[in-house]
């Protein structure tokens, strides 16, 4: 109950923010951080809870983005439906990759996600309807919904909504029997199966939900930039960040990826503005190495050890 009140409060804040914060850059940078919260949360559902690492976040993100672009260009689909369509296509992609590789334990899924990124990027490069390799400029709708004064504010609000949905789903999964089943899979898949856990079904469900949320995060991407082109939509940055953020925040709990994304996403935005846009990639690498070596359970692990003083129990 407290969670849902908090979620409603955050949504309300995002809705009235334009009355207080007029700086346009705030929404432009904030959108990116929110987008990473969704990606990190989505990645964690499969990678953190079940232990199946997805290196292809960029592919799921871009599939969401390009599904939205294609439908926007074809029938001028409204943003809400673009997001649903992006989520549906990316969810199907997750299910498909899962069906091909999740029957096997181990790293096959991870390898396939790398392959699928390369394949899909090549396909989109050659798909002229959505601009091919040279990209496609997008004209945003002229009408701005509700009381917002520009489209970026509206996108910021919408992305806040997607964040809350993603986090609510991750929380629901983690705290219930599904999450316990996924953890059992991560700890020992053979023992999980012998404890009655339908491991394949759970892995497929997690891959589908995880992919769909990544697609939902990608769907507004072209509207946000007023432009889309394959190399930025399929960027390796998404894969690296979606993996680094949960690890830095802590993978065991839904709040971990949120903390990691806010921390890493904000630092990246600040570094981009104050130092250089190249440096922000270095930040991810350095922070990832530091956390893996010094705090393998992330910020949450540090919190448990030094604030709650719980040790490893």
């Amino acid at each position: 109950m407290r969670f849902f009140l908090g979620a409603l409060l955050l949504l309300a804040i995002a809705a009235i923010a334009p009355m207080f914060v007029r700086l346009e850059y705030f929404y432009f940078a904030g959108f990116v951080v929110l987008q990473f919260i969704v990606l990190a949360t989505a990645w964690n559902i499969l990678g953190g809870f079940a232990g199946y690492v997805n290196f292809g976040t960029g592919a799921f993100f871009a599939v969401g983005a390009y599904s939205a672009v294609a439908l926007y260009k074809a029938v001028a689909l409204p943003l809400g439906l673009q997001i649903l369509a992006g989520a549906a296509t990316a969810g199907l992609l997750g299910l498909g990759v899962g069906l091909l590789t999740l029957r096997l334990r181990g790293i096959f899924f991870s390898i396939a996600t790398i392959a699928i990124t390369i394949i899909l990027e090549t396909v989109v490069m050659n798909w002229t309807y959505v601009g091919g390799a040279k990209g496609l400029p997008i004209l945003r709708p002229t009408e701005i919904p509700l009381h917002f004064t520009n489209y970026t504010q509206w996108l910021f609000f919408v992305m806040t909504g997607i964040v809350l949905i993603a986090v609510a789903i991750a929380r629901y999964i983690q705290t219930g029997w599904i999450g316990r089943g996924l953890r059992a899979i991560r700890d020992n898949e053979g023992a999980a199966e012998c404890s009655g856990v339908p491991t394949l079904k759970l892995k497929l469900a997690a891959a589908t939900v995880s992919g769909a949320l990544m697609g939902a995060a990608g769907a507004p991407f072209a509207q946000y930039l007023s432009f889309i082109e394959p190399s930025s939509a399929f960027s390796l940055n998404y894969a690296v960040n979606a993996l680094a953020m949960p690890i830095i925040g802590g993978t065991a709990h839904w709040i971990g990826p949120v903390i990691g994304a806010i921390l890493l996403g904000s630092v990246q935005q600040i570094v981009t503005v104050t130092i250089s846009s190249e440096m922000n990639v270095l930040v991810v690498g350095v922070m990832l190495v530091v956390f893996v070596v010094a705090a393998p359970e992330g910020v949450l692990g540090l919190w448990r050890r030094y604030v709650l003083k719980k040790g490893d129990e």
Binding site: G196, V197, A252
Partner: peptide, 17 residues
């Protein structure tokens, strides 16, 4: 064992599933 879980939770998995 499901090493990240408590002993009790280890038993909850088959009870639930």
């Amino acid at each position: 064992p499901f090493g990240s879980m408590s002993v009790l939770e280890n038993l909850v998995v088959p009870l639930e599933y």
